[in-house]
Design a protein around this nucleic acid. Structure first.
Lengths: 335, 335
DNA sequence: GGGCGCATTGCAAGCGCGTGCAAATGCTGC
DNA sequence: GCAGCATTTGCACGCGCTTGCAATGCGCCC
């Protein structure tokens, strides 16, 4: 199709050595004399030679490619996670392949197939849930699998989760300490494991203190849903005085609706908390009290595991559980 | 390193055909009888066979990989662009490889080297500017190059730009129509071609109407810079009554500072415009009048060009120039 | 029945690379 | 000078795939 790239062969000829010498020059830890190495490097430089990683991957059975499977990557939290993961992958000498699964359900499976085709060393799933059969196919082929924030029972993949439920408990404490009694949880209808864990944790912690929780669920996990949820919760006769939003995006929408549509003052008349600590949460129009996703730690954990000899534990290890710090801002009284 | 994947060889044996038959079955347009195709498919299914795209790329001299070179991908505009591009690439049967260049200067060159190593069919540069020598290396090797929103004179790559200057002119009109006379431009210090084009266009259009423009530049292109820029511009004796921010992110910061730190009402006392139309611009706390980046059109344009036989025009074609629609919201009076 | 054209199939070469193995080289010590 | 050793080098094979070419089989028409 196109002019072929320069090959090791050509470099070898120009340098007056064998092709293996070239190969070895670019293979760390191989045996080459400094003299031939110099000659090879010189020729390579002159010709603009770069090792063909496709061919190398073929030989080594290790492509260096890691597949990132993501939906909603235009979203602040997701994009920051993608950023962190690619950064850590690069630092580890690997490269990220990005697959977008926005389009339709089942595209996670398609994405994993794509990962297999390109012989990715691993796939990191940031959203959605693959079919059991396909994950098994991946694992059987020696492809590593990382699931981030999607704690299903499914064993085999390496899983990284947050202490969602425990975090939700901390919010209850904060709300009650601020004098709130009418608690509500604003969730999306996505039903993601981590979202549900927050919801359950919130309800459970409230129950311990003898408090009921109004739960409302609507739409996808975004700003618009937050507005709708506010509409629903703030028009109730027993209007809540404290709302935990499953996500910062929802919280932003909720807060905007509360202030602008209902003229409710936050935090005086209404306490609000979110989750993720997206950048917007810190903007002065929001100043949202929220939980910080340890994005960097998540990425580090995932990439480290990929590097390690994790064959030791045969798919039986429990999920890694990371801590989400509570970031105090002014959407809850009495910081 | 790891259990090898199942190969075409094994499928062939199981199906009782030759390896070529398997290959042809998975090559669209190749000559295979329906009977053998069936047998092959059956065996492939049973064994969980997937064509090795690394090997295929080796033969065809066409990997199907397109390298995306990005910085600040946690940012709303950038991430939405990445999203759109990967989506279009997937629809075109290609796959995106993501390289993050946040770390340091010169990493764009490193990224392009990486693209060459993986024999990417093309590289799309969304941020930063590669060295001339390295782009030449890419082009010489038959790798296609797309530059988005970085209009440097450098010919060779395919370039997609917006009508930044013209858009800036429209803002001036809107400001003047709203009765503003003291115009300002709030820019970052990044000095990106498109940012500078907006600045120059704004100044030029104002001059035509006999108006001077106060220009302030500070820091990177983000919210925090917007706040600082507000600090600088709004403490002037001849405080501006209309500010065009180079970016929505800057505009958000500027608006927040104006409202919360200076108790200035927008748009009554101050008209504001941004650029990009990030999601936050539509949030009710901002309601920013801004220019919509035609993200989808940009992505489509780029991917289409990759598909076409663009060898026809030998690097001499002028940049494609797309139009940025003005989105009217309430940060300028008199919509 | 034989010759012809066509669709299908298998063979084998080759894409660019890594690597085991054996040959070659350099060096040391006697 | 030569055996003995360590280091370096080249050869050749194979990774999984595509594809040109020749061989095979089939149906068709004269």
């Amino acid at each position: 199709m196109q002019k072929p790239f320069v090959s090791a062969q050509e470099v070898a000829e120009r340098a007056g050595v064998s092709r293996s010498a070239v190969s070895r020059t670019f293979t760390p830890g191989a045996s080459v004399s400094t003299e031939t190495r110099r000659k090879v490097m010189e020729a390579a430089e002159a010709l603009g030679y770069h090792v063909n990683h496709l061919a190398r991957g073929l030989m080594r059975n290790e492509s260096g490619i890691v597949c990132l499977i993501v939906s909603d990557m235009g979203t602040p939290y997701r994009s920051s996670l993608v950023r962190a993961v690619t950064q850590h992958l690069q630092d580890a000498g690997k490269i990220a392949m990005l697959v977008n699964t926005d389009r339709f359900d089942g595209s996670v499976d398609l994405a994993l197939r794509q990962a297999i085709r390109y012989r990715a060393d691993a796939s990191i799933i940031l959203s959605g849930m693959p079919d059991k059969s396909i994950t098994e196919l991946c694992l059987k082929n020696g492809q590593r699998l990382v699931l981030i924030n999607r704690d299903d029972a499914q064993p085999g993949p390496f899983r990284i989760n947050l202490d969602d439920a425990e975090a939700a408990g901390r919010v209850v404490t904060a709300f009650v300490r601020a004098g709130c009694r009418r608690l509500a949880f604003a969730n999306s209808q996505a039903g993601t494991p981590s979202l549900m864990a927050r919801e359950r944790g919130f309800i459970a912690a409230a129950k311990v203190l003898g408090l009921e929780v109004m739960v409302e669920r609507y739409g996808p996990t975004n700003y618009a849903s937050g507005r709708i949820l506010a509409q629903r919760l703030l028009t109730r006769r027993d209007r809540p005085d404290a709302v935990f939003c499953a996500t910062d995006l929802i919280a932003c929408g909720f807060l905007d609706a509360a202030r602008h549509d209902f003229a409710i003052s936050v935090p005086d008349q209404l306490c609000l908390a979110g989750f993720d600590d997206i950048e917007q949460a810190s903007w002065s129009s929001y100043q949202l009290t929220t939980f910080a996703q340890p994005v960097d730690a998540i990425a580090r954990e995932a990439v480290n595991w990929l590097g390690g000899d994790s064959i030791a534990d045969p798919a039986g290890s429990p999920p890694v559980r990371l801590h989400a710090d509570l970031v105090w801002r002014s959407s809850i009284r009495g910081a």
